[in-house]
Design a protein around this nucleic acid. Structure first.
Length: 436
RNA sequence: GGCCCUAUCGUCUAACGGUUAGGACGGAUCCUUCUCAAGGAUUAAAUUCGGGUUCGAUUCCCGGUAGGGUCACCA
C-alpha cells in the first residue's frame, strides 16, 4: 500500500501585507488536511530577495497563530537553495533547461538566465473545482525558471518544493489556474508526480476585482485582529465565501467546518467580500461566548478609567466586535459615566411642553426615587417608580426625556432606567436636582 | 488583444430536468419604545440574452453579451 496520506500546503509570499483572501486559501488547506488526517504545511515563498521582508512574514505568522490555523510544518524557500540548485543542474544536464543569452531591457536584468526548454504541447489537467482544463503551452515559450544558479524563480521552486514535501493536493486561488500548465511541464521534466489541483474562486472587492495587497477597500488581514474580530467569526465568514455545505446553517465553529467541509461543493465563480455580513456573523459569534468571556473582553477594550462592569450591558447591545467598544468611547457615548453632562437647558424640553411643567415632572421623579433604598436602586425598580408617574402624563416622554437627558446629556442614549442604575442613587438625584 | 475561467435577489448562496425558485446579510414597513441599541413580525428583491435537446429547462449543449484571471529576469 503506497503512502496516500493527504499533504496540503499554503504558500504565501512575504512581499506585502497579507490580505484576507489568503485566509480562505489557508483555511481550506487546513480543513482538508485535518478532515483527512493529513499534514498541513505552511511555506514562506521568499525567493524574491528584494521584495521579501521579515516583517511581512512575521505578520502572517502572527495572523495564523491568532486564527488558530495551526500548521504542522513551516518552511522558508530561501532555506532550500541547495535543493533548488541540484534540480536546475539536473534539468540542464538532462536537456530540459538551458543557459540563455539575453539582451537586458530593464535595470537589474541579467545577460544570461536559465530558461525551460518548452516541449510545446497541450496539457490537460483535472481540477477538483473547475473540471478539466486544457491549455496549449506553446504560447508560454521557453519561460525563465531562474535568473542564475543562486536565484531560482517561482514556478521552479513551487514544483520542486511541492514534490520534495510530498504535497498531494494543491489548493490555491484561481489566479494560479493559468500557471498550472507550466508547472506541470516542469513536473514532467523532473519526474515529479502530478498533485491533485483545486483552484478556489477569487474573493473580489466591491469593484469585482481580485483582492490585492494594495487594496484600499478591504484592509490587510491583520487589521481584523487589531479591530477585535473573533477568529472563529472571520474563519466562518471566509469559509462561506465560495463554499456552502448545502443546508441553511450560517454559524459554524472551526470544528464544524473541519467536519463539514467538502471541496466538491466549492463554488466556481468569484465572490465579493461583504463587510456587513462579517459584522453580523461576528456579533453572532460573540453571543455564543460565555458571559464571563464577553465581560472580560469588553472590559479589556475599555480605557482603564472606566473599566466598570456596570457598563457592560449597554455596551454589549451596541457592538458587533470588540473594537467597537473603543469607538463608543471615542464618540463620547460613555462620557456620562465618568463626568457630569453639560448641555443647554432647552435640550431638557420635550416637544413643546412648558419648562415649568418639565421641572415639576423632574421633582416628582426625585420624590419617588428618594423612596428607593440604595440597594433597591435597580433598573427594574427605577423603571416601575418612574413609569408610575410617566403613565399619568399625556405622554411618557414628558418625564422620560428630561430625566434621560439630565442623566446622559445625549440626544441618543440608553434608557434612563439603566443609566440611573449605573450612576447610583446619589449621582442620579444630584443630576436631576441640577436639571431643575 | 491571445489563452483560461465564470454567470440565481444589491451581496453570500440553496434548488443531484418537474419547487409558489428557498435561506442569510443588507433594505423597507410595523410592533416594542422619550431617543439610541437590542428584540419580534411582515415585506420587496434573482435564474444575463438568443438558439437548441426534452413532455418539461435555473439545471444539459451551442452562440452572443458581461465580468474576472493570466500572459515578468513577482509570487
Amino acid at each position: 500500500m503506497p503512502n496516500n496520506k493527504v499533504v496540503t500546503r499554503f504558500a504565501p509570499s512575504p512581499t506585502g501585507h497579507f490580505h484576507v483572501g489568503g485566509i480562505r486559501s489557508a483555511l481550506f488547506n487546513f480543513l482538508f488536511a485535518r478532515q483527512n488526517g493529513g499534514t498541513y504545511i505552511l511555506r514562506s515563498e521568499d525567493t524574491d530577495k528584494e521584495r521579501s521582508k521579515k516583517e511581512y512574514e512575521d505578520e502572517f505568522l502572527e495572523l495564523f497563530d491568532w486564527l488558530g490555523l495551526k500548521y504542522d510544518i513551516f518552511f522558508r524557500q530561501s532555506d532550500r537553495l541547495e535543493l533548488h540548485q541540484k534540480y536546475i543542474k539536473k534539468m540542464i544536464d538532462d536537456g530540459f533547461a538551458y543557459l540563455s543569452k539575453e539582451t537586458p531591457t530593464e535595470e537589474g536584468q541579467r545577460e544570461e538566465v536559465i530558461r525551460f526548454k518548452n516541449p510545446n504541447k497541450k496539457v490537460t489537467f483535472n481540477d477538483l473545482v473547475l473540471g478539466d482544463i486544457t491549455v496549449d503551452t506553446t504560447d508560454l515559450g521557453d519561460f525563465i525558471i531562474a535568473r542564475d544558479m543562486n536565484e531560482p524563480l517561482y514556478h521552479l521552486t513551487v514544483v520542486i518544493d511541492d514534490f520534495e514535501m510530498g504535497i498531494t493536493h494543491v489548493i490555491r486561488g484561481q489566479e494560479h489556474a493559468s500557471n498550472t500548465p507550466r508547472q506541470i511541464l516542469i513536473q514532467e521534466a523532473i519526474g515529479a508526480p502530478r498533485p491533485i489541483y483545486a483552484h478556489l474562486p477569487l474573493i473580489l472587492n466591491k469593484e469585482k476585482a481580485k483582492l490585492s495587497k494594495r487594496d484600499e477597500s478591504v484592509p490587510p488581514a491583520i487589521e481584523y485582529k487589531k479591530r477585535g474580530y473573533l477568529p472563529d467569526a472571520l474563519l466562518n465568514f471566509m469559509a462561506l465565501n465560495g463554499w456552502n455545505p448545502g443546508g441553511e446553517q450560517e454559524i459554524f465553529s472551526l470544528a464544524e467546518l473541519i467536519e463539514k467541509f467538502d471541496i466538491a461543493k466549492v463554488q466556481k465563480g468569484g465572490g465579493i467580500f461583504n463587510p456587513e455580513k462579517l459584522e453580523w456573523l461576528n456579533k453572532e459569534h460573540i453571543k455564543l461566548l460565555s458571559r464571563e468571556e464577553i465581560e472580560k473582553n469588553i472590559l479589556e477594550w475599555l480605557p482603564a478609567e472606566i473599566q466598570n462592569p456596570k457598563l457592560i450591558p449597554i455596551i454589549f447591545e451596541r457592538i458587533s466586535k470588540w473594537g467597537d467598544v473603543k469607538e463608543m468611547v471615542a464618540r463620547g457615548e460613555l462620557d456620562f459615566f465618568s463626568m457630569r453632562p453639560e448641555y443647554e437647558k432647552n435640550k431638557l424640553i420635550f416637544k413643546n411642553i412648558l419648562p415649568e411643567k418639565i421641572s415639576e415632572n423632574i421633582k416628582q421623579a426625585i420624590n419617588v426615587l428618594e423612596g428607593l433604598n440604595e440597594q433597591d436602586f435597580s433598573q427594574e425598580n427605577i423603571k416601575s417608580a418612574l413609569m408610575s408617574i410617566a403613565d399619568k402624563l399625556e405622554s411618557r416622554g414628558e418625564l422620560l426625556h428630561p430625566v434621560r437627558f439630565a442623566l446622559s446629556g445625549l440626544d441618543k442614549s440608553p434608557d434612563p432606567f439603566i443609566i440611573a442604575e449605573i450612576l447610583g442613587k446619589n449621582e442620579t438625584l444630584s443630576r436631576l436636582q441640577e436639571a431643575i
